[in-house]
Amino acid sequence: MKNITLGQYFPGNSPVHRLDPRTKILLMIAYIVVIFLVNALILYVLPFAFVLFAIVLSHVPVSYVTRSLKPLRFLLVFMFIINLFFTPGETALLSFWRVNITSEALLQALFISIRLILLVGGTSLMTLTTSPIALTDGLEKLLKPLSRLRFPSHELAMMMTIALRFIPTLMEEAVKIQKAQMARGADFESGNVINRAKSMIPILVPLFISAFRRADELAMAMESRCYHGGEGRTRMRELRFGPCDAVAASIVLLVAAAIIALQYLMQNGWAAS
């Protein structure tokens, strides 16, 4: 329980790690938009190559990235099958009983799966190379302009930080409470789903009470350390855009431009023929 990793940060000092978190968040958004814009299978080679290139550059073992795809496997299969059977189309590839598999459906199923894989693979590369604290910092800075509209960007980042800090602590406590209740004869294993959900109450009630007590004490500790909101606050690590950020941005923008241009050409080419 003590070895819970927060998020899935893989510490390192590669060019990808050193990128400003703001750059990474913005480029990730651009990357996602491009993935959903592409509508020719062959063009997925480019984002795929881009992700591979970034993985190699980040020194993160490929297995870490593929591991993040693992919880997705059921969803992937499910989406693939649903799209395969239920997308309407004309060119029948295979038909038996009442089932028709058309080439349009196959294409659609492939699209969905590839998009999902690229989406999760790419974003998990970002969380693998950015520490949670850098991510919240970047998010706070990016949302800062919204604070003029009373959007609580600093408070949001602070809440995320505290949540990340206390997840392992509260999990440890939940296990402790569960053991204490088991020692008093509580049964967590038998019965149907509803009974088992009900048996969580003796864990959740003490956990909530203790969480409120912790919140109270933490607030006092923060006040003792002169915390008074985001105003006049400095940061030990200041976020600064460097040459790396410019290079990364140009690479992503180039790849994106290439994809959009190729797509435009291909579509117009088909239209002409």
């Binding site: 927060l6 930080t161 990340l164 800090r165 602590t169 933490l218 350390r225």
Partner: peptide
Amino acid sequence: NPDNQLVTT
């Protein structure tokens, strides 16, 4: 309580 006075990760 040492747990309840550390704020960040």
